[in-house]
C-alpha cells in the first residue's frame, strides 16, 4: 500500500486510491508473489520431508525402550511404504564381554572386490550414485605408500604379478577422530568398539568425513537409490536401515549381523578367507589367536594415533 500512498500530499488532492494506482499496485504485488512462490518451488519438490514423528524424535541415547519400539515401528512403516518390503528392524545392543576386532590377511587377499559388493547388498547402500564402504587399494610390492595406490584397477585377472591389494574400510578406531569432531554427538563409540551413527540425529556437516584419516565415511549427496528387490530387510537402527539425503554413513561391522553373533557380510563372501573377525576379549577366538601368533603389520597409519581395531597381517 505504500506504493499507492501519495509521496507528496500536494500532488494528490483527493488522497484516496485512484483506479490507476490500484491496478499498478496489484500488478506489482501479483508478479512479486508469483516470483516468490516460483523461487520456493524446489522446497515443494523435496522428497525427503521428515514426518512430524521423525522430526520430533529424541536423541538415540535418550530413547526409552517404549520410545524405541515406536521408532522401530515408524521405520518399518516408512520402509514398507517406500520399497513395498516389510523389513525387520531391530535395535541391537552391544553384547557383554565382547569387543570386536577385524584382521585381514594381506598375503591372501587377491583383490577380487567381492567384499565391496557383498557389503553394498547387505547394508542397503545407494547404487546410483554409488556408495561403497570398502575401497580396495592396489599397491606395488615393497611399499605401503598410499599415494602409489590405485583403486580403479580393472585387469582381466587378479592377483596381478608385482602388486598386492589392501581393502580399506572403517577401522573402528579406539581413538576415533570422527567422534571428536561431531558437533551434535550423532556418532559415538559403543562398548563393543563399533563407532555408530544415528542417522536421525546427523546434520550432515561432514566434519567427520574430513577428520577420518582412512576416507571411511560416505555422505548421501542425494536420496539413496536402492532397487526394491535388492533391499536387505534384516535391519538395525544403528546399522543398515535406509539412510536419507544429507546424512553420513560408514562401515559398522555389519552391526545387524555381528551383534546377533554372525560374521560380517564381507567376511562370509571372501573366497580366499583373508578376512577374520571376532571377539578379542575371548582368548580362544580366531582373532585372538591371529593377533597373538601372526606377523601383524600393526594398523594402517599407526602414526596418527587412532589405534584401529582393524589389523592387517601376513602369513609366515
Amino acid at each position: 500500500m505504500s506504493l499507492s500512498a501519495p509521496h507528496d500530499p500536494q500532488a494528490a488532492p483527493d488522497a484516496g486510491t485512484t483506479r490507476r494506482s490500484f491496478l499498478r499496485t496489484s500488478a506489482v504485488l501479483a508478479t512479486g508473489l508469483a516470483a516468490v512462490a516460483a523461487s520456493l518451488k524446489p522446497l515443494f519438490e523435496m522428497e525427503d520431508i521428515p514426518s512430524a514423528e521423525q522430526f520430533m524424535q529424541k536423541y538415540y541415547k535418550e530413547l526409552t525402550p517404549a520410545d524405541m519400539a515406536k521408532v522401530l515401528q515408524r521405520i518399518e512403516r516408512e520402509v514398507e511404504k517406500q520399497y513395498g518390503v516389510r523389513p525387520h528392524v531391530r535395535d541391537l545392543k552391544p553384547l557383554d564381554g565382547v569387543e570386536f576386532a577385524y584382521a585381514l590377511n594381506l598375503s591372501r587377499c587377491i583383490g577380487c572386490r567381492k567384499c565391496v559388493h557383498a557389503c553394498v547388498a547387505e547394508n542397503n547402500q545407494s547404487r546410483n550414485p554409488e556408495i561403497q564402504y570398502i575401497r580396495v587399494l592396489k599397491l606395488p610390492h615393497g611399499t605401503f605408500d598410499l599415494e602409489k595406490s590405485d583403486h580403479n584397477y580393472a585387469p582381466d585377472q587378479v592377483p596381478e604379478k608385482g602388486f598386492f591389494t589392501m581393502p580399506v574400510q572403517c577401522q573402528q578406531c579406539h581413538n576415533p577422530p570422527c567422534v571428536k569432531v561431531c558437533p551434535v554427538h550423532a556418532t559415538w563409540q559403543e562398548t563393543d568398539g563399533i563407532t555408530v551413527i544415528d542417522y536421525d540425529w546427523c546434520i550432515g556437516c561432514r566434519y567427520c568425513e574430513a577428520a577420518c584419516p582412512y576416507w571411511a565415511r560416505r555422505f548421501n549427496f542425494t536420496k539413496p537409490s536402492i532397487p526394491a528387490d535388492r533391499l536387505n530387510p534384516e535391519m538395525a537402527y544403528l546399522g543398515n536401515r535406509p539412510r536419507k539425503k544429507g546424512v553420513m554413513e560408514k562401515c559398522h561391522f555389519c552391526i545387524q549381523r555381528t551383534r546377533a553373533g554372525r560374521y560380517p557380510a564381507c567376511l562370509e563372501v571372501c573366497p580366499t578367507g583373508s578376512r577374520k573377525f571376532g571377539n578379542v576379549l575371548d582368548p580362544n577366538s580366531e582373532i585372538s589367536q591371529i593377533l597373538r601368533t601372526k606377523r601383524v603389520f600393526m594398523q594402517l597409519k599407526e602414526d596418527v594415533g587412532t589405534n584401529p581395531r582393524f589389523y592387517y597381517y601376513f602369513d609366515v
Binding site: 553384547l95 553373533g261 554372525r262 562370509e268 578367507g273 577374520k276 577366538s285 580366531e286 589367536q289 601368533t293
Partner: peptide, 24 residues
C-alpha cells in the same frame, strides 16, 4: 604343517556362520 596349524587355529581358510558359537 604350518598351514594346517593356521587352519586349525582359524588364521587360514574360511569360516562362515557365527563367530559367537553360543548363538549359532
Amino acid at each position: 604343517g604350518p598351514t594346517y596349524r593356521d587352519w586349525d587355529s582359524g588364521a587360514h581358510g574360511r569360516t562362515n556362520g557365527y563367530w559367537n558359537t553360543k548363538l549359532g
